[in-house]
Design a protein around this nucleic acid. Structure first.
Lengths: 338, 338
DNA sequence: TGAAATAATCTAAACGTTTCGGATATAAAT
DNA sequence: ATTTATATCCGAAACGTTTAGATTATTTCA
């Protein structure tokens, strides 16, 4: 492999001069600069990034520890988000280091290890929890990070989030406009901030129409299709079942649809079901899923860009970005011919 | 940050001795070894991995460039595979570098860049193509890699693959046993090896029962739900439509189910539809999907382990692993009460 | 003409490891 | 009493960069 030294020998200049020529410093004469750049090109020189990192004391790498339960994890949200983060990172010359860890002790260990080993310059955080130990830790250690989501009470960090309250109000308005009054809900663990936000949005949206969310109509699901399926069955087994089920994410909504169909109901006629996220699958299910759209790929890119700017010490034009999601009305909430 | 030098000053030994003590060399007395290890522990020493990498001329990092079209990529296959790779890599002390690139020129560039910059010690390759330029290149450059999938004619590299022919024969036998004779198929671009293999399996499986796959019954889909939906509609619009549709992956099968349902058909009674992969969603759709299961998470781990062993120069007990997938019979191929 | 400014280049140290080849001291063997 | 072996340890170089500061040569200005 070609090094600066090789070039310096070839052109008869010092390593310093070669380095400075290649980095465009202006204390190298135009002539030698050209000469050195030519030689480097010709010899196929590629800087050794590890040596650069050692010298610069930077890793040019960001970390993304995906919080996921169990090996059979296959949330479309993550693949799309990951693509957004990864492509932005590579555009900005950063590497992306990923691993997966179930939320909890092992996860915190993973963060500490990555920091202790100075393996990354910063973190991408998703799926925030009410009182998020990851964020508290990172803040305490003054380690750079950027977040998709918010947390309970502090906001002294950069984040992008979707306005879940707004999104759920759209859903509430839509369902009410279809005539529903008994409405069930499948929400994830309320420790998850986005669950809390969406639930709050639903409640306030319904309250605006003087509708309450009854306790037995409100179940906790694990965000998977299976969770949605099981909880929907539980809800529908109520002696006086709701006419609409609001799931807090698409995957659970799809499970709920299956459950309703298994019970012999026609979704969109006998019962309305809605999701949240608008994953690509939502459009091609039967019936297609009424849901709330958010641009996950772009969000991944935005969070990544925020993080990298933070790492580079650049000013952020906006530290907090709140996106308005949009309601996508499809068939699962009510047939067109209704 | 604590360095070897700091420790060496503290304990009054040379940097060399400290390094060797910490790495368990036996030319350091038990006594000093203990002492140094104690001091290191107490001072919270963490080796600087970048310095180690520079010195060792290794990156301890593997690369995974996910071949994906477009930003709205959300194939559950990848998230699960990624988790398998990532966790195995971290168990073995390696970092995992990921990026996404659409197959083609930009993708090859990405490989060359990662190699040229010596950013990784090896690659994970998936979704092999008939004549895979990635693999040819990597072989030519003698750069380590391990593959999920095979290619057309050479096999002088390590891979794990599922026996797609076997899997599809299971499907064929199953469908024939249900009485089907007119069978349609949605396969991906035949450039993709797994598509070719599965298609071959289906054809040979049907041929064993003297059934041919008619040209107009055989469509090419893009692996997404949408692709399955569109191609299924095309197939079913035939004046003499098939009674069963075999999709070469689950996502397309789900799309096909939606299409059939949109046409007013009851899947599992009026038409049988099967998938391949057994993604987590398959179990909780309505009807649930008959498909072929393969342990994607484990495969990710296996491929990763193969790669790392190759990098470390360790002997592989098996260079080629071919897994027998298993047929999972659910509702979409035919109701139990049939 | 001499001092000061500028341009072009270089030396050497630094980043934090690992490791080769001694060096020293003690113990064992002749 | 000299050699030989063994156990401990250390100096220095190496990995490939970047950069602070010094040096030299050239130009500019008074």
């Amino acid at each position: 492999m070609i090094t600066l030294k090789d070039i310096s020998i070839k052109v008869g200049k010092s390593i310093t001069t070669v380095s400075r020529a290649l980095n465009g410093y202006d204390d190298v004469s135009q002539e030698t600069k050209k000469m050195i750049q030519g030689a480097a090109e010709e010899m196929g020189y590629r800087p050794n990034i590890i040596a650069q990192r050692l010298q610069k004391q930077k890793t040019d790498t960001i970390g993304f520890i995906i919080p996921t339960f169990g090996p059979r994890f296959s949330d479309p949200f993550f693949s799309e988000f990951l693509a957004g983060v990864g492509n932005m990172a590579s555009d900005l010359g950063f590497d992306l280091l990923v691993s997966t860890q179930p939320p909890g002790e092992k996860e915190y260990k993973a963060y500490h290890k990555m920091m202790g080993d100075r393996r990354v310059d910063g973190f991408i955080i998703v799926r925030t929890r009410r009182n998020d130990e990851r964020i508290n830790d990172l803040l305490k250690q003054d380690f750079p990070f950027a977040v998709f989501g918010r947390i309970e009470d502090r906001n002294d960090f950069s984040y992008v989030d979707e306005d879940g309250v707004y999104g759920m109000r759209q859903i509430a308005d839509h369902l009410v406009s279809l005539g529903h009054t008994r409405i069930g809900c499948i929400a994830p663990d309320p420790e998850l901030m986005f669950a809390a936000t969406r639930l709050e949005g639903l409640k306030s949206g319904l309250a605006a129409h003087d509708i309450q969310l009854n306790g037995s109509m409100h179940k906790v699901g694990d965000l998977t299709q299976k969770g949605g399926y099981l909880q929907a069955k539980a809800i529908m087994s109520d002696p006086n079942p709701p006419t609409a089920i609001v799931a807090c994410n698409d995957l659970m909504a799809l499970g709920a649809i299956s459950a309703a169909q298994d019970l012999g109901l026609e979704v969109g006629r006998d019962v309305s079901i809605t999701g949240f996220d608008d994953i690509p699958l939502a459009e091609y299910t039967h019936p297609s899923l009424t849901t709330v759209h958010q641009p996950i790929y772009q969000i991944g890119g935005m969070v990544c860009e925020m993080l990298i700017k933070t790492i580079l010490g650049q000013e952020l034009e906006q530290k907090h970005i709140l996106l308005k999601p949009s309601l996508i009305i499809r068939e699962s909430s009510g047939k067109n011919n209704r």
